[in-house]
């Protein structure tokens, strides 16, 4: 229902570099245009991304491809239960020659960090990463080191295998601007894969489409996307609904509200529009809100989808009801 709106008839504003980005990513990640758009919106809104799916669904491919087309530096950490904060942040090592402690930066000093299976690490290690995500700097031995610009974390986690995992608490989930899942490929794409198409092979041929400066410019343009009062009314109706309906154990926070607007701006930009329409909000709502919501009788912590569906169905885009 959403996402198929002809862009040309609404504002005449097609960002060539964005469509090139999408095209490039679509070559690697077959049949996942919507997820590509969402992931791209997330990065353009300067947010961190959480990809939640089963193993073998292309999480790594997506994050790898994103880093590559954006022309950014890329590091990957496989999270395990014995991973320590120092393994991510880096350590100070005593230098015999200079008789001083010398800081050896860890893998976090990169532009795109893929944190694979983040829920396998202990809360302490998770905490170190999530703090870095928020502050965009780290502190080791009392010294503060800024992280490179831009800095994105794309974390993945496995929703099913909960054995030996440390699920992220709500407050930490909140640090991720979006949570998306990729889902199974459709039959035609799957046939292609079965016939021997190897995304990893194409990945090597993937060229950087933009560079760091261009990315910063795109991010700047996203913040200029126009948000009308009528649209803010709609967003506020959504927020009010989650706070008033007793199906929700708690409503969306003001930070979540801001995230909604930023992502909707980015999504409208990706769709090639100079203003946000309610459909943009509806498109990004599941990714932005699902992991921030819990039902009043939620035991599994995965009721967010049902709740967001109810928001989409019951909150009117028009004023009044």
């Amino acid at each position: 229902m959403v996402g198929h709106i002809p862009t040309t008839i609404l504002g005449v504003f097609v960002s060539t570099s964005v469509s090139v980005l999408i095209d490039a990513l679509a070559k690697v990640l077959l049949g996942k245009e919507e997820q590509i758009k969402l992931a791209l919106s997330c990065l353009l809104a300067k947010g961190h991304l959480l990809v939640e799916d089963l193993p073998g669904m292309g999480k790594t491919t997506l994050s790898h491809a994103l880093a590559k087309v954006l022309g950014l530096e890329y590091q990957r950490i496989q999270f395990t239960s014995d991973l320590l904060p120092a393994d991510i942040l880096g350590t100070s090592i005593f230098n015999q020659a200079s008789t001083e402690f010398e800081f050896r930066p860890g893998p976090i000093f990169t532009q795109v960090l893929l944190a694979d299976e983040i829920n396998r690490a202990t809360p302490k290690t998770q905490g170190a990463l999530l703090e870095a995500m928020e502050e965009r700097q780290i502190t080791v031995d009392g010294k503060t080191y800024p992280l490179p610009q831009p800095f994105f974390v794309i974390a993945t986690q496995n929703p099913i295998t909960q054995m030996g995992t440390y699920p992220l608490p709500e407050s930490q989930l909140d640090r991720f601007l979006m949570r998306i899942s990729l889902g199974y490929p459709d039959p035609t794409v799957e046939r292609k894969l079965l016939k021997g198409f190897n995304p990893r092979h194409d990945m090597d041929q993937l060229q950087a489409v933009t560079n760091q400066a261009e990315l910063a410019q795109l991010q700047q343009r996203v913040t200029k996307i126009f948000v009308s009062d009528a649209l803010l009314d709609y967003v506020q109706r959504i927020l009010a609904f989650t706070r008033q309906s007793n199906r929700f154990s708690f409503g969306l926070s003001p930070r979540a509200g801001m995230a909604l607007v930023q992502c909707a701006q980015a999504y409208a930009f990706v769709a090639g529009r100079d203003h946000v329409i309610p459909e943009d909000v509806q498109s990004i709502l599941p990714a932005v809100a699902e992991h921030r919501l819990a039902g009043s009788q939620d035991v599994t912590g995965h009721e967010g989808q049902r709740l967001v569906d109810s928001v989409l169905k019951q909150v009117d885009v028009m004023p009044g009801r």
Binding site: M1, V2, H4, I5, L10, I277, P278, E279, Q282, V311, L312, K313, Q314, V315, D316, V317, M318, R321
Partner: peptide
């Protein structure tokens, strides 16, 4: 138009 249906989505329908 459904309650939560956007104007453009409705237009397509």
């Amino acid at each position: 138009r459904e309650t939560g249906e956007g104007v453009m989505s409705f237009s397509l329908r």
